[in-house]
Write a protein that binds this DNA or RNA. Structure first.
Lengths: 125, 125
DNA sequence: CTAGAACCTGACGTTGACGTCAGAGGCAAG
DNA sequence: CTTGCCTCTGACGTCAACGTCAGGTTCTAG
């Protein structure tokens, strides 16, 4: 498929796909005229890349991890890298959970006691 | 305390503290000569700000939320805002969890079956 | 064959949260 | 008083992940 279709399927921009290629995260075949051609599995790969970006990984880190994911590269270094990123994500989840709980406290205070709502008029839940 | 001490206590840079003030997130008294002076609770406040930044909130969003947190501002809008950000964080946690589980699959594949390690030499766990 | 959409490379623009530097003033110690 | 560290404002630099524009080529429908 061509780049436009891949963009439409994955929901990322054409520019982003070219950027991924520039960063070495996504490869493409070329037609004789130089246009990019992608095989079907490229869509899954783009989804994975997006997933990792969304998890806060940099393109450099993703570049390091991708070979471990699909080519099953398996060295002590790659395993260490995977474990490290996994831990980073775990810590990020923990931090987010603490933040969420903190917000929950605030929300409870603002919704719970009628005292806080009294002077604003309390219309019930 | 002065800005340097607050920075040391909270682990954020002096520049960041001035930036927070510029964004309206942190207030400071001034000495007659114009230097910033912070009360003790400022440290907690900075920690909270850092927490929210780490959760991916923008300074604009934090600016909107902070009054709800400490001044107990309680309007329908503020509650909606809190709920919205709480949900955003929840979704972020869910996404991160999926990513982590995906990484776990990869890790299991790379550590588990001796088949994958065979040609590299398997030295046991 | 031709118009218009899609594609190409190259390059500059954007945004947020600071880093960093310049130039000038403030503060405690000896 | 002066040395040296801290602080001030103002302004430009940075970095990542793209957005956007320019100027040109390619593909496809009619």
């Amino acid at each position: 498929m061509r780049i436009g279709e891949l963009a439409a399927r994955t929901g990322v921009s054409v520019r982003a796909l070219r950027y991924y290629e520039e960063q070495g995260l996504l490869e493409s075949g070329r037609s004789t005229s130089g246009q990019r051609r992608y095989p079907e599995p490229a869509a899954d790969r783009v989804q994975l890349i997006q997933m990792l970006y969304a998890a806060g990984l940099s393109s450099r880190t993703i570049l390091d991890l991708l070979p471990c994911v699909d080519a099953k590269v398996n060295t002590p270094e790659s395993r260490a890298r995977l474990a490290a990123e996994r831990q980073r994500i775990d810590e990020q989840i923990a931090a987010l959970t603490r933040t969420r709980d903190r917000l929950d406290q605030v929300i409870e205070l603002s919704e719970g006691p009628a005292s806080g709502c009294a002077h604003l008029g309390f219309h019930g839940v």
